[in-house]
Design a protein around this nucleic acid. Structure first.
Lengths: 262, 262
DNA sequence: ATAAAGTGTCCGGTATTTCGGACACTTGTT
DNA sequence: AACAAGTGTCCGAAATACCGGACACTTTAT
């Protein structure tokens, strides 16, 4: 995804190598050999060995001594746990997602923004045959999702356009969305406190999302269902009602819990 | 804690700064200002600003724009989630800890080794007034805990002595443990599949631990209770039985789940 | 007001680090 | 057996990233 960096030519900072390695491991999602990482990053193997050695010594990465594969280490887990402790909405929202998933059998997700992309924070896969990629950490351009529209709904049009890269308006279904049209959809989503998109990611899925608002009016996260486009209207209404109930439960928490840093 | 590093004098690598910053944030456990981090690391403020800028741009750290405080970011959470996904024992063990805590009202913990220290991976605080530091990510020298004895029980005496720093045998209660005595305790713990220590961390606590063994015979983690030293024998037996039941449930998983990288 | 302490930013020089390439091994295929 | 592809380690040279120090502001205390 995203920038291939200015990798060629001159030497690159160790810190940037660290960031690159962690990012690519998150994308790949499974233990990976050093050589493959180097190839994927177009980085010299010697540098990557060096960096990984340091990170492994710190427990941030772990190297499987048998296979030579590299992946996140226990220290990374602790860092994530510390983040979750400071941001209770993660745990509370994950609980609601699990509840929604169990109650309805549909795929439910907790989403938010990371940098300028939509990201899945937690998901509960449903019973249906329809399966989206729902790993936590998976990211997509904002305009590709219903949740994305809600997550930028509290921003001004200028802020939104500064945030989103022009090419992100080219949807995977082939449509190119104009900034005007996107802006209108965002405004509508904000007004209704609900966003439903059909057939953007592919021809078979519909996303139904509601925002979690802090008392400052910021949309700090969304809850959403991913369902087949052909879902019956009555069923869809029931799912929206379920989302609203979870939304209500989360929205009762003070802003200090929903958005500790704002 | 641990090494103050060779911080003074010469220039330090950016990568090492990254590691230091993440480590100190884990130790402190709360959002912290850049100046305080620099002071704690005795590092030049300009360098720390620089490094934090890069890590924040990557989402690994987040800077609170109002207070200037720095802490882990959402990307760190995703890295931790990826680790947990590859190491299911984390989730399974945490579930057992919660069950143990709810069933008994005592403080229960899931522990393992990180580098050469004992680390709390997950904990459920009990009802009693007695409260130990139980944040995930908190670490102690191996000889200070019952779990520590079990976690090194599958190693040879030489491996153990290479792992543990000599000063770690100075217990917080003032006793200095000889390597011989420690070795005997480890052997006894291994033979019984149980370890109980009293009054090591302070005069009022007792730790009761059982190992989670992979089918390779490696002790990959422990489950333990932290209770008052004066606990009644019958109660202690009941707690041991509860630990054994959880241990049995976890031990039924194949080695590939308990220790994916081994 | 004045002072003191802390924050965030910028800059040039040099001590350090990244890179490219080579080497010895291992593994698996022809 | 010979070969190809990949892993892990080491090295010197050149490019540059880190440090020290300075500056302009803001906040709090005297």
């Amino acid at each position: 995804m995203a920038k291939t960096a200015q990798s060629s030519g001159s030497r690159m900072r160790g810190i940037d190598r660290v960031v690159e390695i962690l990012e690519v491991l998150r994308e790949i999602g499974v233990p990976t050999q050093v050589g493959q990482l180097a190839a994927r990053l177009n980085a010299p193997r010697s540098s990557i060995y060096e960096v990984i050695g340091s990170l492994a010594a710190a427990g941030i990465l772990e190297v499987n001594p048998n296979t030579g594969e590299v992946f996140f280490g226990l220290a990374s887990y602790f860092h994530g746990a510390a983040y979750a402790r400071q941001n209770p909405i993660i745990g509370l929202g994950a609980e609601e997602v699990n509840r929604l998933g169990r109650a309805t059998g549909e795929t439910a997700e907790l989403c938010t923004l990371i940098k300028s992309r939509y990201a899945i924070v937690h998901s509960m896969p449903g019973n249906s045959l329809l399966r989206m990629e729902t790993k936590p950490g998976f990211t997509l351009p904002v305009p590709w999702t219903a949740s994305g529209r809600l997550l930028v709904a509290h921003m001004s049009r200028e802020e939104v356009e500064a945030l989103i890269a022009p090419e992100d308006f080219n949807l995977p279904n082939g449509v190119t969305l104009s900034p005007d049209a996107f802006h209108d959809e965002v405004r509508a989503a904000d007004a209704q406190g609900l966003c439903v998109t059909s057939g953007i990611l592919d021809n078979f899925t519909k996303c139904i999302a509601v925002p979690i608002r802090s008392t400052f009016g910021q949309n700090v996260a969304t809850l959403c269902f991913v369902v087949p486009v052909a879902i019956e209207p009555a069923r869809e209404e029931a799912l929206v009602a379920a989302l609203r109930e979870s939304q209500r439960r989360l929205s009762q928490y003070p802003a200090s819990i929903l958005a500790p840093g704002a």
